[in-house]
Design a protein around this nucleic acid. Structure first.
Ligand SMILES: [Mn+2]
Ligand SMILES: [Mn+2]
Length: 586
DNA sequence: ACCATGCACGCACGG
DNA sequence: CCTTCAAGCG
DNA sequence: CCGTGCGTGCATCGCTTGAAG
């Protein structure tokens, strides 16, 4: 394989220009791997950048790393750069910095502090009859109330201004660079620093020279466009305006699903604003499972039961995942009843198949419920751990480490991956089936224990989508391996692999480990704790159903707080569980 | 694994 | 005066 | 009562600083 080890990517923080070194690393990385995705202008820009004086490069990068693209010169001051004005000159000459940018009122309010705004907007304040001591928000509301506040330079908003404001005009390009490098926009320049500080560590996956997140410029642009729309939505722009600007779905499945998620949140905003019809359109267009469910609930709320019923039936027909089935099966009887159909009792009973042992604990409180139950149940020989998803996913992540970090093309493309880019995509498992089988085989022949422990030591602290190092201690790990039978692990791991995205959560709060239990007895049990008024979530029910079907020990513990401070008296009473034939049979 | 995701909590509805 | 919050930073 | 839906709050390095109220 044409792979090279990843060179240490992050600059030492002893270097006063460490951030510039990091930025240049990204630029040259993109230049090397995404050259064909850059426009001629962008290639020129990179060339120009490299010829700039160091201070100017550094100032540019300082601005890029900060929030927004507008900066007050009195707030742009860096020891290692020295004279800001001087560093600015070449940037202004290239047109990368605008020395007298037009400012909207919003921008003005972000740049000036309240005392300055009171001076700048003295007339407006007087005209609007605002109190002298009104808040920034009130002032802003009053100013934005006025029709057509045209953007203007600072000097026009506030002739007496003593500071200047500049606009970095190349922020969009720098976002594009960052996007091409990381394959997302959630990671940023701080990634380098946090890594250098040792606050995060990443697996070193060998990358081929060709590995990259995007295959065409259009893909990058699509991502950026969707992202901008999302930002504007978060910024309060109306879904009615924004929805018209959403491009048709990309043929790239990843981008298509990002688009669907944008439409979903736009739909929610439309709903919040009372525009159900727009919401319905957006949900229909999005057509991912969340959007399908939302669409049905809107239709139900609007009383369009027949439409909803038909869509429910077709959704059930279109390979819904378990979580979607749960929601659909809750909807179906309601809709059927509204349509005058008879709903049989068995329909409902069927979906709640297995029922776990459920009981009530009366504990002194209130206090954190999971802690309280853990303490109440723990004994010296049977400790209780508050692990939620961390233990099972952790064991999974450790055993399947080489699967998760297998250097497949497209899965890893920069040095800061906590997991493969395709982890939650359809073909993650098939792409790695042989390796997965090899890991599963270790559960059959017993090698898994050693592998898991060895990996725990070898990969300690390295970011993984499944291993939360803070919770899976060596002690817990050793005990868990002693107590959880491999057959049970295998079943859980298969379920995880079945749908990593939806099955990685919902595991019970607590696990009690009983290493000294007699041979035939179970050596562990899982307990989902529910405080007063809490109830099982869908994903929790799915896991509990699964545990029951596979005869794995799981309980649901409801907590009631004792009114009187009588801490010694803990009552454990069996509550009548809704019986199901399955349960009694086993 | 992204102002997100996973969890608990609290209120409202309708049966 | 306090306290609270976001930004900047390494 | 029950089962539902739905909105909310909480938490992500940890420190310093400046603005707001
Ligand atoms: Mn929990
Ligand atoms: Mn719980």
């Amino acid at each position: 394989m044409n792979s090279a080890p990843v060179a240490p990517a992050t600059a030492s923080l002893d270097d006063p220009f460490y951030y510039l070194t990091n930025f240049r690393y990204v630029v040259s990385w993109v230049n090397a791997r995404h050259h064909d995705l850059l426009s001629a202008t962008e290639r020129d820009a990179i060339g120009h950048f490299e010829t700039l004086p160091q201070a100017s490069q550094a100032l540019l990068v300082r601005m890029v790393m900060r929030k927004g693209e507008l900066f007050r010169l009195d707030k742009l001051s860096y020891a290692e750069i020295g004279d800001t004005e001087q560093a600015l000159v070449p940037l202004v000459a290239l047109g990368w910095v605008d020395r007298a940018p037009q400012l909207t009122s919003r921008e003005l309010f972000r740049l000036l502090r309240l005392s300055e705004l009171r001076q700048a907007l003295a007339d407006e304040i007087a005209n609007a009859g605002l109190a002298r001591n009104s808040t920034k928000a009130a002032l802003q509301a009053a100013v934005e109330e006025k029709p057509l506040q045209a953007p203007a330079p600072l000097q026009q908003w506030w002739p007496a201004a003593t500071t200047q404001v500049v606009r970095l005009t190349v922020m969009a390009f720098c976002d594009r660079l960052r996007l091409m490098f990381f394959g997302n926009l959630r990671q940023d320049w701080a990634e380098f620093v946090l890594t250098e500080l040792g606050l995060q560590r990443f697996e070193q996956v060998p990358l081929t020279a060709e590995s990259r997140a995007f295959q065409s410029r259009e893909e990058v642009t699509t991502y950026l466009t969707l992202h901008r729309l999302r930002e504007r939505l978060d910024d309060g722009e109306l879904p009615q305006t924004l929805s018209t600007q959403v491009l048709p779905a990309s043929s790239n499945r990843w981008l298509a699903s990002r688009r669907a998620r944008l439409l979903l949140t736009m739909g929610r905003e439309a709903e919040r604003g009372g525009d159900s019809e727009l919401a319905l359109t957006l949900y229909a267009d999005a057509n991912n499972s969340d959007a399908r469910i939302r669409r049905l609930r809107v239709l139900e709320r609007l009383g369009r039961y027949s439409d909803a019923y038909k869509l429910t039936i077709s959704a059930l027909d279109a390979q819904p995942h378990e979580g979607e089935i749960q929601a659909l099966m809750r909807l179906l009887p309601r809709l059927a009843r509204k349509l005058g159909q008879k709903v049989e009792r068995s329909d409902r009973a069927e979906q709640q198949a297995a029922q776990a042992l459920t009981y009530v604990l009366h504990l002194p409180g209130p206090q954190p419920v999971e802690r309280a139950v853990a303490e109440a149940l723990a004994t010296p020989t049977a400790p209780v751990y508050y692990v939620e998803n961390s233990l099972l996913t952790g064991l999974f992540g450790l055993l399947f480490w080489p699967v998760i970090f297998k250097p497949l093309p497209g899965a890893f493309f920069h040095p800061f991956h906590s997991g493969p880019a395709d982890l939650y995509r359809e073909d993650f498992v098939p792409q790695r089936q042989a390796d997965i089988n090899a890991c599963l085989a270790q559960l059959d022949d017993g090698r898994y224990k050693e592998t898991i422990l060895r990996t725990w030591h070898a990969k300690q602290g390295i970011a993984s989508p499944f291993v939360h190092w803070g919770i899976v201690s060596e002690e817990l790990l050793a005990l868990a391996l002693k107590c959880l039978p491999p057959a049970h692990l295998r079943a859980c791991f298969m379920r995880l692999l079945d749908d990593l995205k939806h099955n990685r959560a919902g595991l019970p709060d607590l696990i009690q480990l009983m290493p000294d239990a007699p041979p035939r007895e179970p050596r562990y049990k899982m307990i989902e704790v529910k405080g007063p008024g809490d109830r099982l979530q869908d994903n929790q029910r799915r896991w509990i159903d699964f545990f029951c079907r596979h005869s794995m020990p799981v309980e649901v513990c409801h907590v009631r707080w004792q009114p009187a401070p009588e801490p010694e008296e803990i009552k454990k009473e069996e509550s009548k569980q809704k019986k199901s034939k399955q349960e009694d049979a086993e």
